[in-house]
Design a protein around this nucleic acid. Sequence first.
RNA 1: UGCCUGGUGGUGUAACGGUAGCACGAGUGACUCUGAAUCACUUAGUCCAGGUUCAAAUCCUGGCCGGGCAACCA
Length: 574
Amino acid sequence: MAGTDLTSSADGSEKPERSLNFIEQIIEEDRRTGKHDDRVQTRFPPEPNGYLHIGHAKSICLNFGLALKYGGKCNLRFDDTNPTKEDVEYVDSIQEDVRWLGFQWDGLYFASDYFEQLYQWAEKLIEDGLAYVDSQSPEEIAKQRGTASEPGKPSPFRDRSIAENLDLFRRMRAGEFADGAHVLRAKIDLAAVHLIMRDPILYRIRHAHHHRTGDKWCIYPMYDYAHGQCDSIEQVTHSICTLEFETHRRLYDWCLEKLGIFPSHQYEFARLNLTYTVMSKRRLLELVQSGDVSGWDDPRMPTLCGLRRRGYTPEALRAFCERIGVARFNSTIEMAWLEDALRDDLNKRAARVMAVLRPLKLVVTNWPAGEVDWIDAVNNPEDESAGSRKVPFSGTLYIEQDDFMENPPKQFFRLSPGREVRLRYGYLVTCTDVVKDADGNVVEVRCTYDPASRGGNSPDGRKVKATMHWVSAEHALPAEVRLYDHLCRQPDPNDVAEGVDWKTTLNPNSLEVIPQAWIEPSLKDAVPGSKYQFERLGYFSLDAKDSRSEHMVFNRSVTLRDGWAKAQKKEGGA
RNA sequence: UGCCUGGUGGUGUAACGGUAGCACGAGUGACUCUGAAUCACUUAGUCCAGGUUCAAAUCCUGGCCGGGCAACCA
């Protein structure tokens, strides 16, 4: 039964839950062999130089999820070894996003917490003859590194004495030199087939203000020198990162071995790719700077703050991360999976309300003048405990323009002249005629209602093909509604011809603003971030940033599945 | 080019020498006061060629194709 997670069900029988991913298999093997005394310690190590996105969520769910599953611990550690790129703004937003996703770290650390220890270890390396100060320019060093087929050449400074190296390194720390004057390098092997092992740089001089250590330091460790040791200090048993760090593992292991400290081990998995969007920090930044999106939290962005604003829930994101799995294969997940995860969550939890996005006036000609009927409407058919509310029915309503056709095709079930439909929770109405404007557009449909059908059913039990949403014109509240579509119009935005900017793949219709839609009055006191299903339209979330009580703004988080639209599309395409 | 790494239905992910399974998608139908949800059924896959074996997605050899590394970034 290897590879299958067995969970006891209530009746005591065992049922296969889900197969183990390769990291879980490694952990279980380690536990079997007692490798780390049954201990599991992971960490999520972002660099505080930008906002977290859905790809980070995968890593967060993995690292924190593993700790949770195996009774271990997971730290949040900021990899802040490059002061010129990092900022507290990001430290704060990252913590907020991790918490929002639903995880609590055991330890909160910064690589900069360990600068002194890291420095001491560097001196030890020098003393052991394993590191030296190189005083060449970056260009010279790059030139000497060689290529895949040619070995590198040694620096003229490679054989400095230990004493001289130590002296120089201490003076580097003391601030005696300008940026770029010297660098500390590991003394490994200039002919190594792994370029990373050709005397990698360990420390560089940077007279820069660090967001945490201030001006205390003017030399900063490189990622490759710092990361493994930080893991080691925190006794991390399983250091999980993405595939592009694969070749770095050699150096990671070299440092820990030469220093003789706790042997954390690095495991790599494939990073998340999603269709119809971009994930790299550089591209995301490009969008923000160019103004193609309104900011990092634009609801079209795959950032966690963007998704949150869009209306995504932590539950949906976690379910998504669980569903996509963890492997070493470079895969691309279909955006539909993400959307499906949201629908799946919101279907069970979101209150149903009625809203009309593109209004068409419907007049009930036989409705008693001035009368208003407050009707019971179920809040969530998936959840009885959600109860019901009252919605006002009157003689002048709005229905969706899409729900009426003067000359309907055969498969159109909704309202058309002479046809009877149900107005959800309201009455059965029959279209008697239409009013057109000078251009011949239908601007009003006129109907009669069946007084005996209150609540939606007629005593004679006759059936109608369609049930439509509606609002009472007099009672409805205006609201701005923002509809979102894929950021890019092709599945892989990177798949463009040579020399063509990927931004040409941006979807010009990724945002559609409906300045004035009509929503039912029960939404009057909706709180920012609250989520609703606008019946038959999709899931919507009250925008937490732009919405005001006097001007509500709803974001469409995701549409409902729409069999009718799909059928039409197929029809049109055929 | 050198090294590392990977290749299972449309998309992901299992199977650890022994019945190629699961999910999403797609299709069909049932049900329905959301053309939603739900339920049922169907669809479709081991990169190629050899070899080992009673038996290969799995092991071996050789190809093919993809990704990564070659920053004083992480």
